Amino acid sequence: MTLASARARTSVFLALAAILLWFAAKNVAPAYDGLRIAAAKEDPVALSDARLDQTLTPSRFSAGLDAGLSAGDADLAESFVTLGRMRGLSATAEQQARLEALRAKAGETAAEDFAQGFLHGSRDNGAAFAGALAGDLTGYGDLRDLLSEAEKVRRGEQADELVVGLAAAGLALSAATWSSVGALLPARSGVTLVKGAQKAGRLSAPLAKSLTAAAGKAVDREALTAGLGAAARFDLAAARAAAARVLRPGALASFRALGEDAATIYRRAGARGVKDVVAVAENGAELRKAARLAAARGGTTRAILATLGRGALVFAGLASAAVEAIFALIGALLGLALLAQRFGFWLGRRI
């Protein structure tokens, strides 16, 4: 082989190597992101961090903050500001001014929200939740809800089994909370949160279905009928006594676990954070993942959920672009290895 031919062969090898290196470099970042997401599929904290690295651009951050401000949701706006601070993103002066105005307005309605929460269990801010919890701890709120379901039965409608189950569990947890000097207050408060979300229609359809099925198995129909009948007659003493028997033995533990997960989310992300979670979670396992995420990420939880949705909690498979990048990277690296082998063999023969 002449020197010119050897040079031409070397140039071809180098050109092919350069092309394969460029192709590999182009796919390293998306392939790494895909593998990172796949590796974090059981860890909601790592999973959400990996997905935020891909999706939380400055424009996405600004749009999420604007959405919270436009909805009058100061908590969500605060969550985006905190998340942005952690990731090197900041609100504009105009957005900060709107947020300050929302904070001032929230303080003006606190007393009204507390009263509404106590009387009806309605609204979803901190003051309203405090009122709803105060009502449930006295037994008033749970008996009110049992009476409401009894009224449905009287009209020939179907009672909400999940509300009935949560109200019955709430009465049992309230009694245990008083006797344990507050040890079960987190579970008691969490049940109040989930019950309020169900009444407001905020639970995702799969979560409502799974919890309703669990409540159906946990509820003693005979005791339920007696309790609803007593509530319909406004016999509150009999209704309370019957409600204590509504849950079958052993069923309280599952409601207690549900309440504790919801309480963890509430402590770190607020009442609206709980309702954001139950709107996307589809079962108790995802609710537990959300509790882990809230425990680790605190006030940023609502912004994370608003940005990623259910993707913050579960791994539903890689996007096609990530899969293509992984296979392209593997192919390029294999091509480089084969090319290096061929070049080495050729060079060895020449030497």
Rank of each mutant, 00 (worst) to 15 (best):
L173E: 12
A241Y: 01
E222N: 12
A175H: 09
A244Y: 14
T212N: 05
E157K: 15
D145K: 06
A242I: 05
F234Y: 11
L211D: 00
A176V: 01
E149I: 11
G165F: 00
K199Q: 13
G182R: 10
G196E: 12
V163H: 13
G170Q: 15
A230C: 07
A242N: 09
G201D: 13
A213H: 03
A176R: 15
S148E: 10
A231P: 03
S210Q: 12
G227V: 03
P206H: 10
L203Y: 00
S204V: 01
R233E: 10
S210D: 05
L171M: 08
A197T: 07
G170H: 13
L236Q: 11
L207V: 00
A241E: 12
S174L: 03
L147K: 15
A205D: 14
L207S: 00
A159E: 15
G170I: 13
L203A: 03
T225I: 07
W178Q: 07
A230S: 04
T192Q: 03
A168I: 05
L203V: 00
S148P: 01
G227M: 01
A183S: 13
V191S: 04
S174Y: 05
A214F: 02
T192Y: 00
L184V: 00
W178G: 06
A226M: 04
W178M: 09
L224F: 04
G196P: 09
L147I: 06
G190K: 05
A238N: 11
G216W: 04
P186W: 02
S189K: 05
A237R: 15
E161W: 02
E151I: 13
A159N: 06
A241S: 12
A187M: 02
A200M: 11
A226V: 12
R245K: 12
L224Y: 08
T225P: 04
A239C: 14
L184P: 00
E149Y: 12
A215M: 05
R202P: 04
R245Y: 03
A208E: 15
R144Y: 08
G196W: 05
A197I: 03
E161D: 13
R202C: 05
R154Q: 12
K195S: 11
G227K: 00
Q158E: 13
R202A: 14
A208V: 06
T225M: 06
A169C: 03
Q198W: 01
V153T: 15
W178D: 06
A218H: 00
A230V: 06
K209W: 01
G216Y: 05
S179H: 09
A187E: 02
A200E: 14
R240K: 11
T192D: 03
A230N: 04
A183W: 12
K209V: 02
R144W: 07
A244L: 15
A226Q: 15
R202F: 10
L147F: 08
A239P: 08
A208W: 09
A241F: 02
K199H: 06
L203F: 00
A241P: 02
D235K: 04
D160A: 08
S204R: 01
F234N: 10
L146Y: 04
R155G: 10
W178I: 07
A187Q: 01
V164F: 02
A239K: 03
R188F: 07
A223P: 01
S204K: 07
